[in-house]
Nucleic acid binder design. Structure first.
Lengths: 194, 194, 194, 194
DNA sequence: CATGAATGAGAGTTCATTCAT
DNA sequence: CATGAATGAACTCTCATTCAT
């Protein structure tokens, strides 16, 4: 039991080291030895938990993505009305991106880079299903614009990534007021105009 | 004259090879030898035109960014009314991102990755000034929401990057109708609601 | 213990390969790969024991210099009378230079070339202190000429380097008689003339 | 005529650049391109005057060695008595080593390093003949010890190289008094003791 | 004669991965 | 399970040399 916990701790330490180092230096500029050192294990130990470097980063991506979506939908409930549901999800996503910025930066880098297997990318996307279901419901009810999910995502969710990166570079600090503006912009770009 | 032209051709071949290979494999997974081979020169020749690998990618970034903004503002004229001006610029940006998708992908990777010098990034940003000026004018006239430029960019311009990447991955094909929807979403997210 | 011994053996093999190859070809004409091959290790292994090529040659210099001075003073004892002490040291130095000629050649090359860090050079000089102390005593007693240590070294010790190099080039073979002549010349050039 | 002079100037500039750069950095750490730049010519031009890098350094060695010996024997005359003759030569050598220290440093590095062809080394030694003749005469007259020329050189001439190097490293400044001491040591080590 | 541009060969060094312990 | 030592392969970059002009 204690042994199992130690294993889990090591795996987590490796995942976290990967996130931090890849954020700072990029995937290929991050040696396995550095990851090992930051996680306080031997380089060889990494290979007990992951097949190779690509597998390590793939698994890290999937794990972070899973955390992200779990957080996003934690307070959402499929019985909510569409607008309410969207607001709940959007706020959680914003919170995650701006508070768990290391995780969010890592995802942004993975999503704009050929560093992740296509298979792992697909795996990561699956978790977004509740949001797509919400949008489907919204379209049927005539509350959400009848456009493709990619378009909805591009205008209501993805801007948060840009704002998160900008904030992390120090160019701007996003307070509550900004977030409200952002939500307004997000919602107004996907709701049907009466 | 012919010698100068040959020099320019070689430099261009190197820049283009860099864009293509970095797009496919990422910065650190692209060896100088591969870039040289694709540009049909010796690896040593690269160092006649660029100081080192970092310099090559920095210069490539600046060059592509300059092309991008030149394209964006080519048909814009500061005397245009704000809404007209924004539409003109937005359409050109969309055209660039979706047609010159190799260049656009390269920029997206640079902007979401620690692969570019901070100095080069700043250098690249400068060229966007006409758009910021347009927004300033729009805010003064009460046509554009009085929010920060980052916010305006996040909701009106940046979504195009997401759509471009999505299209390049083959998930979606953006036709004229999609573009019109996208423009509507972009404009409605930054214009003041009457 | 066995593992430690293997480490020491490898380090020694590297040091010895460095001495031999630098003697034959010079510092910059000796590639790391050749050193590795002669020491029967992979090139990468060198970097487990030394930071880089400069560090390798610096450490080799210091180690050889330490061996040299240890040999020089092994039979010397500070209570010996000055003339006796000098003779003892001189003979040991001569023995070292002519028998351990690889080591001596290496030191000569280091001392006449910009291939060693100034810091390492200083480190190497420190070990000669007992000889300087002996000379100080000799000057106080009026046995040794009251001239600078550099002068004493130039005329009593340094000629051995020239003779060693000459012998290694095959121009001459130094037997016991030559050595006695050399000692006479050395001593007569630093002792006070009665 | 003017064209010939320009050729000679270029050759000299190359020789001088070689001396200075090899003194500072060593033979192999001195690129041809750097030599060319210091001599204000194109790298390709070097190959009009010298076959290759090895040839350049060989020729430089021979030229410097010739200058050195020309200087050494300039005021010497074979009719001088042995002691007078030796003094005259010794003083000129000392003057050269301490004043033309760049040239002298270069020779020292060549003589203690495998950077010169054996053939060029032999070529350089030939010029010392007048000194060897003087010593032969001295031995016949019973003024000079009946030992090998190498021994005589080691104790009377070579120490000047050590003193020169030491002075160039800044450890010591040799004034007239030091030189007189040095000459005393040199002469007393090779003259026959009455 | 002189050159700047070009390069093939090879330098030092790093790193993902393995394996005896 | 965990490791540190070891390494082959591959990287970036340099340089002596050449050649069209």
């Amino acid at each position: 039991m204690a042994a199992l916990q130690k294993s889990i701790d090591k795996r987590n330490a490796l995942i976290n080291a990967t996130i931090e180092l890849v954020n700072n230096d990029g995937f290929h500029a991050t040696p396995m030895s550095k990851i090992a050192k930051m996680a306080c294990v031997s380089p060889a130990t990494i290979y007990l938990y992951f097949e190779n470097k690509q597998d390590l980063v793939n698994k890290t991506y999937i794990e972070v993505k899973a955390n992200y979506t779990a957080y996003a939908f934690a307070t959402y409930d499929e019985t909510m009305p569409v607008e309410k549901g969207f607001k709940v999800i959007w706020k959680r996503i914003a919170e995650f991106k701006l508070k768990e910025s290391a995780d969010a930066m890592f995802l942004a880098q993975c999503d704009n880079t050929p560093m992740i297997d296509e298979a792992s990318r697909q795996e990561g996307i699956k978790h977004l299903q509740p949001l797509l279901d919400l949008w489907a419901r919204g379209k049927k009810e005539g509350v959400i614009k009848p456009v493709s999910d990619y378009m909805l995502y591009a205008y209501s969710i993805n801007p948060l990534s840009f704002l998160m990166i900008t904030q992390n570079r120090g160019s701007v600090k996003l307070d509550k007021e900004h977030l409200d503006q952002a939500y307004e912009a997000a919602w107004s770009s996907i709701k049907t105009c009466k």
